[in-house]
Nucleic acid binder design. Structure first.
Lengths: 150, 150
DNA sequence: AGTTAACATTTAAGTTACTTAAATATCAGG
DNA sequence: CCTGATATTTAAGTAACTTAAATGTTAACT
């Protein structure tokens, strides 16, 4: 009984997921959808905003890409003036990437727009539903993280 | 009060979303993560599996890319033997794309794996929670679709 | 029939985001 | 001072996109 219902749930999820993904990506934050910056680029800026200056290896670990890929990504961000490269005085192999003022402003702007979007969408369901939804999301995140270690 | 809580929800969502996306993408269906086929390619095969033979314009509309992009995508799928091109006898401008037997088998295999993954993850929460979650997801989808038209 | 506008698809050229493999530079330890 | 590990970049190649322009049909006027 319970088992059957998980199966049905999996079926419906498979059907709904693509529609949702498409829907959300359609209304991504303006600066992203307007092509001023790409999603991976924004995720890096966001990381730097929260974590301060980070070295290339750390960035590529967080983003789960090779350092070679990160070189290109950062290169474009530097060219746009959103981040700066800085040598580590203690170890000259290391290059620290830090947000510029322009980059920090962009992060704030995009985050704000994203929040607005979430508010607009999820403001249409009840507070109880929101609470339920977030709770489940958090549990799923924990389950995913636990499996990662194993 | 209710307003404040939406704000808080938006904040938490912004924080949790990237972690979830990373978690799910890490355990995408094997055939996809093993590099046998890419996500856009799978979505096209899935579309063809459900909708039968479709013309290029229809495919690019569903996928929300240009027809030029679709030409390249389909080209690679043809080269791998997952789909076939067929002229429409009634209108020679039109080229219908249809799944090959090999393509259909791949879709079935990947869908099965994806379902297994969902079962493994969502099997760890209660049936009631699953029902709640799915309900909210469906409402969100409808909200997104309604906004699309406007 | 003959021109033209609209439609369906492809080609060409360029960008971003990746990969692997190899090069370069620096550090740290014997 | 040599060697191995570390940190980053370069080089070459692929997939997935974009815009702009070319090619082939079809359908509708005149």
């Amino acid at each position: 009984m319970g088992n059957l219902s998980v199966l049905k749930f999996a079926d419906e999820m498979s059907r709904v997921m693509p529609q949702l993904l498409r829907g959300f990506s359609r209304r991504q934050a303006d600066e992203i959808s307007k092509g001023k910056i790409t999603l991976p680029q924004f995720l890096i800026l966001d990381l730097l905003d929260k974590g301060g200056a980070l070295k290339m290896t750390a960035l590529s670990l967080f983003m789960e890409v090779t350092t070679a890929a990160m070189t290109g990504l950062v290169e474009r961000l530097v060219k746009c003036g959103y981040v700066k490269r800085a040598f580590d005085p203690g170890d000259r192999r290391i290059i620290k990437i830090e947000l510029s003022k322009k980059g920090a402003e962009l992060v704030r702007k995009i985050s704000q727009q994203r929040r607005q979007m979430i508010i607009k969408i999820f403001g249409q369901i009840s507070e109880e539903e929101r609470a339920n939804y977030l709770n489940i999301l958090l549990r799923i995140r924990d389950i995913l993280n636990k499996e990662k270690e194993a």
